[in-house]
Amino acid sequence: MNKPQWTGVLPAATTQFNDDESLNIDATLRHLDAMLDAGVHGMIMLGTVGENCSLDPQEKIDVLKATVEHVGGRVPVLSGVAEYTTKMACRTAQAAQDAGVDGLMVLPAMVYRSDARETVYHYRTVASATDLPIMCYNNPISYRVDISPETFAELADEPKLVAIKESSEDVRRITDLKNVVGDRYTLLCGVDDLVLESLLLGAEGWVSGLVNAFPAENRLIWDLAMAGRYQEAVEVYRWYTPLLHLDTHPKLVQYIKLAVAECGYGTEKLRAPRLPIVGEERERVLGIIRRAIATRPNAQTYAGALAS
């Protein structure tokens, strides 16, 4: 299987809800439009930020079908696959393929901490369930299973595994992967506040959470880096970093949805047990978001960087 062009800025998109916690697909699609208008290069639905594990199976399919139809091939659409068992992950992958997505972002099985042999079995089995290319999502901080470079070398003979979203929060892992598996996989940074470092070391894409609220700024950093304008990229990155730190907190979904609401792209409505943050925590996070809005970089200062 040829590697698909999963490079550039790929949002891990939010799922929007009504006040009664029912799906608000229209609002979800309007939010996608704001990111598409800013020039993102793909769309990942039903990831962590999309509250995958808070949706029932039919709701997931409803979101995917609506997204595929709405995006209409403008960019690739991927679906997260995060299930408790391998069999459930296969069933979800098959349903996502039937919904028309272009690829899958597959996590190790949830809750149980699999060892390397079990993790390899999970990915091989899920890969056999569909014809779709797969981005492997390595996030040992949140999900407790660390897929090592050596494990990815063992999986390298499975052609449907084409990309790695690296979210170990250790930027050294990019170099370790390059040294062990070379260019076998497309490497994508999955940690917002390590993106510029990751791009310098060889990552080819950025799966982002804060892009949901600041899509133009994500695209600006990407374009500056791709143009080799690193000093300017660093300037924007330093402005952005207090916001990007929100992506690495256990409450990243609450924080990102609050930023989305503050920027006028949706609401902060969540599904319980997640609740909107309150008190000192809310004021602190709002302060970070509002300071960023008040001091956001003027794209005209970086004329030419935003050329597609």
Score class of each variant (00 low, 15 high):
A156M: 11
P108Q: 01
Y123A: 00
N52Q: 13
M135I: 12
D56N: 11
G72Y: 13
E154Q: 15
D19N: 13
K60I: 02
A127F: 05
R30A: 14
I61L: 05
Q97L: 13
V106H: 01
P149R: 07
Y123W: 05
G47I: 13
T28Q: 06
S22E: 01
S142R: 14
S79Q: 09
T130L: 09
T130D: 02
I44G: 07
E158H: 07
E158Y: 10
V81W: 04
D131V: 04
L107Y: 11
P76W: 04
M88E: 08
E118I: 01
Q94T: 09
D56P: 03
M45K: 07
T85H: 01
V106E: 00
A163L: 12
L36T: 10
S54Y: 13
L107V: 08
V68C: 07
T130G: 02
A156K: 14
K65I: 03
D157N: 13
R91L: 14
E21I: 09
V120I: 12
E154P: 03
T48Y: 11
C90A: 00
T151V: 15
K60R: 14
Y121M: 02
C53R: 15
I164Y: 03
I164A: 01
T85A: 00
L23M: 10
R113L: 00
S148T: 15
Q94P: 02
K160M: 04
M88S: 12
L78G: 04
T130C: 06
V145A: 11
V40F: 04
N18T: 15
S22F: 01
Y123L: 03
T92F: 04
N139C: 15
E51A: 06
I147L: 14
L132P: 10
T85Y: 02
E51K: 06
M35Q: 15
Y123P: 02
H31I: 05
V63K: 03
P149L: 11
L155K: 05
A116R: 01
L104V: 01
H41G: 06
R113S: 00
H70Q: 07
E150H: 12
A34H: 15
A38N: 07
D102A: 06
G80C: 07
D26Y: 09
V106D: 00
E118T: 13
P140S: 05
G100F: 13
G103R: 05
V126L: 02
C90V: 02
N18E: 11
L64V: 04
H70P: 08
M35I: 13
V106Q: 01
D19S: 14
A163G: 15
A82Y: 15
T119A: 09
G39S: 11
R30V: 09
Y84L: 10
M105V: 10
G47H: 14
G72T: 05
L32G: 01
A153L: 15
V63P: 08
E59L: 08
P133N: 07
V40E: 01
L29N: 09
V63E: 02
P133G: 06
E83H: 09
M135K: 02
K160L: 05
E118H: 06
E83G: 04
A153K: 15
D131Q: 10
C90L: 02
G47C: 14
V120L: 00
P133F: 09
T85W: 00
A27R: 12
I164R: 02
I25M: 06
V40R: 03
P57F: 06
V111M: 01
I25C: 10
P140H: 08
D37S: 08
